[in-house]
């Protein structure tokens, strides 16, 4: 049985004239025990999708189920079985770390000690601050506490809406390691993020843009889909270089990527042509080498098509 299954979900906001389609005909499914990532820019419809799946929002049409329970009819069953961590920190800021955990444990009719082993690895990191009010924790600590609270009743499916937004790089890394640990415990996880580099860690990723799913595949599968040759170039005058590249007709796309520009070419024959063109233009110290496309290149290509 799929942990999450979504069929033809449509969701729109606003009145007739200024209707905004947040989700237009979305379908996908997440297998049990899978770490499924939903990658998409801000406003792609990630939060709407999460709110529908966590029974907080009614979709205009379409069906969705979590662990076999319908999100409309069996919402009470779903609420017992899922953990949800909203994008915005939404625990009680005036209660301490410990009080928040105990509170959420009790409203799920369980206790902190009963499921301690599940959250132990995460909790030990915030334990030194257990008597501190949640509002006074750092961003990374807040995320860890929120994850603990979402896990305290041992949910079967975990929904994490942009858990790493606004968190530093080290904490982000730690957070994803924790998710791997939870996956091993058999919890299905649906996670959304605007950061494309995080997609590599998921089992499968769906690329969501403007309410539509552009692709669903494993990270390796997404990369395998990228057929064009990709070249990284660097010169002294980076801006002039990018402008020059964009004028060439055998170039499909070019965009800044770290300290290089990534250039997507139409075919293999274009590689020497690019080399010639750039050497002819005097931009100083041109370095150029072929690179393997990574997941970001794939998503940029998908979004632009």
């Amino acid at each position: 049985m799929a942990a999450v299954s979504v069929e033809n979900i449509i969701m729109s906001y606003g009145k007739k004239k200024q209707k905004i389609n947040a989700l237009s005909d979305i379908s996908f499914s997440v297998a049990a025990g899978e770490l499924f990532g939903i990658i998409g820019p801000d406003g792609a419809g990630k939060t709407s999708l999460f709110r529908i799946l966590t029974t907080l929002l009614l979709a205009d049409s379409g069906q969705a189920s979590v662990n076999g329970f319908d999100v409309v009819k069996d919402m009470k069953q779903i609420r017992k079985r899922i953990g949800y961590m909203p994008g915005r920190f939404s625990l009680y800021q005036d209660l301490t770390v410990e009080e928040n955990l105990h509170f959420f444990a009790t409203i799920f009719q369980t206790s902190f000690s009963e499921n301690y082993n599940l959250i132990k690895d995460i909790y030990v990191q915030i334990e030194p601050f257990k008597n501190r009010r949640a509002g006074q924790l750092s961003g990374g600590m807040k995320q860890k506490l929120a994850l603990c609270c979402a896990l305290i009743h041992r949910p079967e499916v975990l929904f994490l809406d942009e858990p790493t937004t606004g968190v530093d790089a080290v904490s982000r890394k730690e957070f994803w390691d924790m998710l791997q640990g939870l996956k091993k415990q058999g919890i299905s996880i649906l996670v959304s993020t605007p950061y494309m580099d995080e997609a590599n860690i998921c089992d499968r990723v769906a690329l969501l843009q403007k309410g539509k799913i552009l692709s669903i595949d494993s990270p390796a599968g997404v990369i395998a889909h990228f057929k064009n040759p990709l070249v990284a170039v660097k010169a002294k005058q980076m801006l002039a270089l990018l402008e020059k590249i964009k004028t060439l007709d055998f170039v499909q796309d070019a965009y800044p990527f770290g300290e290089f520009h990534h250039v997507v070419l139409q075919n293999e024959k274009a590689v020497p042509s690019l080399e010639q063109e750039l050497e002819a233009a005097d931009l100083g110290h041109i370095t150029m080498h072929k690179v393997q496309a990574n997941i970001e290149d794939c998503f940029i290509q998908l979004m632009k098509n």
């Binding site: 907080l56 939404s90 625990l91 799920f108």
Partner: peptide, 10 residues
């Protein structure tokens, strides 16, 4: 936003 967290509980 705490009501979100409360609303997903049983």
């Amino acid at each position: 936003g705490t009501i979100e967290q409360i609303n997903v509980t049983p």
